[in-house]
Amino acid sequence: MTLQRVMHVEDDESIRAVAEIALTDVAGFTLLSCDSGQSALAQAEAFAPQLILLDVMMPQMDGLQTMAALLQLPSLKNTPVVFMTAKIQQSEKQRYLDVGAIGIIEKPFEPMELGDTLSELYQQHITS
Protein backbone atom coordinates (compact mmCIF):
# COMPACT_ATOMS: atom_id res chain seq x y z
CA MET A 1 0.00 0.00 0.00
CA THR A 2 1.41 3.37 -0.96
CA LEU A 3 0.94 6.64 0.81
CA GLN A 4 -1.93 8.67 -0.63
CA ARG A 5 -3.82 10.57 2.08
CA VAL A 6 -1.86 12.96 4.25
CA MET A 7 -3.05 15.38 6.91
CA HIS A 8 -0.80 18.37 7.63
CA VAL A 9 -1.22 20.51 10.74
CA GLU A 10 0.74 23.75 10.81
CA ASP A 11 -0.10 27.23 12.07
CA ASP A 12 2.29 29.11 9.76
CA GLU A 13 0.44 30.08 6.61
CA SER A 14 3.56 30.25 4.43
CA ILE A 15 4.79 26.80 5.45
CA ARG A 16 1.29 25.39 4.81
CA ALA A 17 1.33 26.91 1.34
CA VAL A 18 4.74 25.44 0.46
CA ALA A 19 3.85 22.04 1.88
CA GLU A 20 0.58 22.07 -0.04
CA ILE A 21 2.37 22.49 -3.37
CA ALA A 22 5.05 19.99 -2.35
CA LEU A 23 2.56 17.33 -1.28
CA THR A 24 -0.13 17.78 -3.94
CA ASP A 25 1.46 19.12 -7.12
CA VAL A 26 4.85 17.51 -6.65
CA ALA A 27 4.07 14.32 -4.72
CA GLY A 28 0.49 13.82 -5.92
CA PHE A 29 -0.99 13.11 -2.48
CA THR A 30 -4.50 13.90 -1.36
CA LEU A 31 -3.94 16.49 1.32
CA LEU A 32 -5.92 17.95 4.18
CA SER A 33 -4.20 21.05 5.46
CA CYS A 34 -5.21 22.33 8.93
CA ASP A 35 -4.11 25.51 10.68
CA SER A 36 -4.52 24.24 14.25
CA GLY A 37 -4.80 21.13 16.37
CA GLN A 38 -8.48 21.89 17.02
CA SER A 39 -9.30 22.13 13.35
CA ALA A 40 -7.40 18.87 12.72
CA LEU A 41 -9.37 17.09 15.43
CA ALA A 42 -12.65 18.24 13.94
CA GLN A 43 -11.85 16.94 10.45
CA ALA A 44 -9.54 13.98 11.01
CA GLU A 45 -12.03 11.14 11.18
CA ALA A 46 -13.91 12.18 8.09
CA PHE A 47 -10.67 12.52 6.12
CA ALA A 48 -9.09 9.30 7.39
CA PRO A 49 -5.42 10.11 6.78
CA GLN A 50 -2.79 7.41 6.27
CA LEU A 51 -0.18 9.68 7.79
CA ILE A 52 -0.23 12.82 9.93
CA LEU A 53 2.41 15.52 9.53
CA LEU A 54 2.50 17.74 12.60
CA ASP A 55 4.22 21.01 13.39
CA VAL A 56 5.66 20.85 16.92
CA MET A 57 5.27 24.40 18.11
CA MET A 58 1.77 25.79 17.71
CA PRO A 59 -0.23 28.13 19.93
CA GLN A 60 -2.94 26.61 22.13
CA MET A 61 -2.54 22.92 21.24
CA ASP A 62 1.06 22.09 20.43
CA GLY A 63 2.21 19.16 18.31
CA LEU A 64 2.45 16.65 21.15
CA GLN A 65 -0.99 17.54 22.51
CA THR A 66 -2.48 17.35 19.03
CA MET A 67 -0.89 13.96 18.47
CA ALA A 68 -2.25 12.61 21.75
CA ALA A 69 -5.74 13.90 21.02
CA LEU A 70 -5.79 12.61 17.44
CA LEU A 71 -4.61 9.13 18.38
CA GLN A 72 -7.40 8.87 20.90
CA LEU A 73 -9.89 8.92 18.06
CA PRO A 74 -10.77 5.25 17.51
CA SER A 75 -10.34 5.24 13.73
CA LEU A 76 -6.99 7.00 13.95
CA LYS A 77 -5.32 5.18 16.77
CA ASN A 78 -2.73 3.44 14.57
CA THR A 79 -2.05 6.31 12.22
CA PRO A 80 1.66 7.11 11.95
CA VAL A 81 2.76 10.62 12.92
CA VAL A 82 5.71 12.61 11.56
CA PHE A 83 6.80 15.78 13.31
CA MET A 84 8.14 18.81 11.57
CA THR A 85 10.23 21.24 13.54
CA ALA A 86 13.00 23.78 13.38
CA LYS A 87 16.48 22.52 14.24
CA ILE A 88 16.32 20.60 17.51
CA GLN A 89 18.61 18.77 19.83
CA GLN A 90 19.08 15.05 19.75
CA SER A 91 17.43 14.58 23.17
CA GLU A 92 14.31 16.35 22.01
CA LYS A 93 14.25 14.29 18.83
CA GLN A 94 14.41 11.15 20.93
CA ARG A 95 11.48 12.39 22.98
CA TYR A 96 9.27 12.60 19.90
CA LEU A 97 10.33 9.15 18.74
CA ASP A 98 9.67 7.80 22.24
CA VAL A 99 6.06 8.99 22.18
CA GLY A 100 5.58 7.10 18.94
CA ALA A 101 6.43 9.45 16.05
CA ILE A 102 7.83 7.52 13.08
CA GLY A 103 10.06 10.37 11.94
CA ILE A 104 11.11 13.97 12.30
CA ILE A 105 11.53 16.42 9.46
CA GLU A 106 13.70 19.40 10.15
CA LYS A 107 12.83 22.87 9.02
CA PRO A 108 13.98 24.28 6.73
CA PHE A 109 12.96 21.41 4.50
CA GLU A 110 13.49 20.87 0.81
CA PRO A 111 9.99 21.14 -0.71
CA MET A 112 10.80 18.97 -3.74
CA GLU A 113 11.79 16.08 -1.46
CA LEU A 114 9.11 16.32 1.22
CA GLY A 115 6.72 13.86 -0.47
CA ASP A 116 9.45 11.28 -1.07
CA THR A 117 10.63 11.53 2.52
CA LEU A 118 7.12 10.94 3.84
CA SER A 119 6.58 8.02 1.46
CA GLU A 120 9.81 6.39 2.62
CA LEU A 121 8.96 6.84 6.29
CA TYR A 122 5.51 5.41 5.61
CA GLN A 123 6.88 2.35 3.75
CA GLN A 124 9.38 1.64 6.53
CA HIS A 125 6.60 1.93 9.06
CA ILE A 126 4.13 -0.46 7.41
CA THR A 127 6.76 -3.07 6.57
CA SER A 128 8.27 -3.06 10.05
Partner: peptide
Protein backbone atom coordinates in the same frame (compact mmCIF):
# COMPACT_ATOMS: atom_id res chain seq x y z
CA UNK B 1 10.28 30.08 15.92
CA UNK B 2 8.01 30.27 12.89
CA UNK B 3 10.37 32.57 11.06
CA UNK B 4 13.31 30.29 11.88
CA UNK B 5 11.56 27.41 10.16
CA UNK B 6 10.06 29.29 7.25
CA UNK B 7 13.01 31.52 6.28
CA UNK B 8 15.29 28.60 5.54
CA UNK B 9 12.61 26.89 3.49
CA UNK B 10 12.37 29.96 1.29
Amino acid sequence: HKLAGASGTF
